[in-house]
């Protein structure tokens, strides 16, 4: 398990991570979303021991990470900006990884290279951006770490490759009980892959939750009554959002779905529809509760 307590990282006067506390269970896929500059990469670098935090701690299975080779041996960080040796091809990089990571598996490297249809003898500088990304993923997956840290890893991959990489990560988690922490600025990118999701904004962790809990904790209802009504009619129900257009009201409710429906049925509504909520909508309402607007945090994604 990865645990951070009040993890803080500053760059001169700028606080990139502000007292971030979280727990990432072993064998899970943990997604971290946030805009550019939210602190996602800084978080990964602080947790993998690249950055020395100014305050707080980051531990893996109870052991501090920074300057702890025994722990770092079980981690692999794949940054957003990829590192390759000058003039190297994939085979040369594999040799390099083999020298640095004791668990590096050459057989798996060869297998994955074939699967991705990449020529390991071709210079990496002749690869496209997406191919270089694939090469780095192959190298990372061949290291067999216990903890993967993927920083914006799906960027530059086409949908087919994205699916393939996601499947490989899922396979690692399922078969080896590996843990993967994946960051992205896109919520949609992560919602189908991650068990847990966290939202990072301006260096702070706004929320984190199990994806399943998130999906079931909020639900949307469409209601209509024959007589005139207003918001006061639903007093006692934990409502995150209320909107009424004519005689039809839309409610976003937190709580037990069955109990709430039973309670509303007693009111003899003309219309009572349960409308499915996307994860994005869940985030929107949860953030509104915390005083943030989704547009501020994911403005570009909403527009997209």
């Amino acid at each position: 398990m990865i645990e951070t307590i009040n993890l803080t990282k500053r760059f001169n006067d700028f606080t990139a991570l502000n007292r971030v506390s979280c727990r990432i269970p072993k064998g899970s896929i943990y997604g971290m979303v946030g805009t550019n500059g939210a602190g996602k990469s800084t978080f990964l670098r602080a947790v993998t021991g690249i950055y020395r935090p100014e305050e707080g701690s980051a531990t893996v299975d109870g052991q501090p990470v920074y300057e702890n080779p025994a722990v770092k041996n079980r981690l692999l960080f794949l940054p957003d900006e990829l590192f390759f040796l000058a003039g190297a091809n994939m085979n040369r990089m594999a040799d390099c990884y083999e020298a640095f990571y004791p668990r590096f598996d050459k057989e798996r490297f060869r297998f994955l290279s074939e699967n991705f249809r990449l020529d390991p003898n071709r210079p990496l500088r002749s690869f496209s951006k997406g191919m270089r990304r694939q090469a780095s993923i192959i190298l990372a997956l061949s290291c067999h770490p216990d903890y993967y840290f993927f920083d914006e890893t799906f960027d530059g991959l086409d949908p087919v490759m994205r699916r393939l990489v996601k499947n490989l990560i899922l396979e690692e988690v399922a078969e080896r009980e590996a843990t993967a922490i994946i960051t992205s600025h896109s919520l949609r990118e992560l919602e189908d892959t991650c068990d847990q999701l966290a939202l990072l904004h301006e260096g702070g962790l706004l929320l984190q939750s199990d994806v399943q809990d998130l999906r079931t904790s909020l639900f949307k209802l469409q209601l209509a009554f024959s007589e005139p009504f207003d918001r006061s009619r639903f007093a006692g129900i934990d409502m995150l959002h209320y909107e009424q257009i004519g005689s039809v009201a839309h409610l976003i409710i937190r709580g037990n779905q069955e109990e709430t429906l039973a309670r509303l049925r007693i009111m003899n509504p003309l219309l009572l529809n349960l409308v499915p909520l996307s994860l994005e909508e869940v985030f929107t309402y949860e953030m509104k509760q915390l005083g943030y607007s989704f547009e501020d945090v994911f403005g570009h994604e909403k527009e997209a």
Binding site: G49, I50, K72, L75, F77, P79, F100, P102
Partner: peptide, 8 residues
């Protein structure tokens, strides 16, 4: 990033 992430 690469070198500082190494298990050394």
């Amino acid at each position: 990033d690469f070198y500082h992430a190494l298990p050394q």
